[in-house]
């Protein structure tokens, strides 16, 4: 029931944004109902995101992706700079599933990391600059995601 309410509210907000607040809710109600029925038929993953964790993760993600863009800009635009790629293999602490997939997707946008392979808890990253401390960054992202999905307890 809570899930249906949350999903319904999100879908209604999505419709509001898509129509730029112009309404058209007769048609909108139809599409919202169809999408809601589809969402509720999906199997539960057992990891519902927490609101507080989501805000923390969003702030962390924004700062990191800004740093990532700045690093790429420096490596691309400064003539003397050059990339020092390397591969890095890590064992994740998060349980395999949506959390690790989201982690890999987020790491693609964070400074200097690109997910090359993900199987279970094994993660292989392509690192753009070998001198950068990548592992602490990955662990920080992991901690944020654990908070997002409520694994910390």
């Amino acid at each position: 029931m809570r899930r249906a309410l949350a999903a319904g509210a999100l879908l209604a907000a999505l419709w509001w944004v898509l129509t730029e607040g112009a309404g058209g809710y007769g048609l909108g109600a139809l599409f919202i109902a169809l999408a809601l029925a589809w969402v509720l038929r999906q199997p539960r993953t057992g990891t519902a995101p927490r609101l507080r964790g989501a805000i923390g993760f969003a702030a962390f993600f924004l700062r990191q992706s800004l740093l990532g863009g700045l690093q790429v800009a420096r490596l691309a635009l400064v003539p003397a700079a050059r990339v020092r790629p390397q591969l890095l293999e890590l064992r994740l602490n998060l349980p395999p599933g949506p959390a690790t997939q989201l982690l890999a997707a987020a790491l693609n946008l964070m400074p200097g990391t690109l997910c090359v392979h993900l199987a279970g808890r094994r993660l292989v990253l392509h690192v753009l600059d070998a001198r950068m401390p990548v592992e602490p960054e990955v662990r920080a992202a992991e901690a944020q995601l654990a908070r997002l999905f409520g694994f910390t307890s």
Binding site: S65, L66, G68, G69, Q71, V72, A73, L75, A76, L77, V83, P85, N108, L109, P111, G112, L114, V116, H126, L128
Partner: peptide
């Protein structure tokens, strides 16, 4: 500026993996 960085990175970085870095990070920030 970030779009420019992404394009220059795409032209300048040595291999597919490094170019993917440029494409995802810089262009999305732009």
């Amino acid at each position: 500026f970030f779009y420019l960085a992404g394009t220059v990175g795409l032209l300048r970085f040595p291999d597919v993996y490094a170019r993917l870095h440029a494409l995802t990070k810089a262009d999305n920030l732009g």
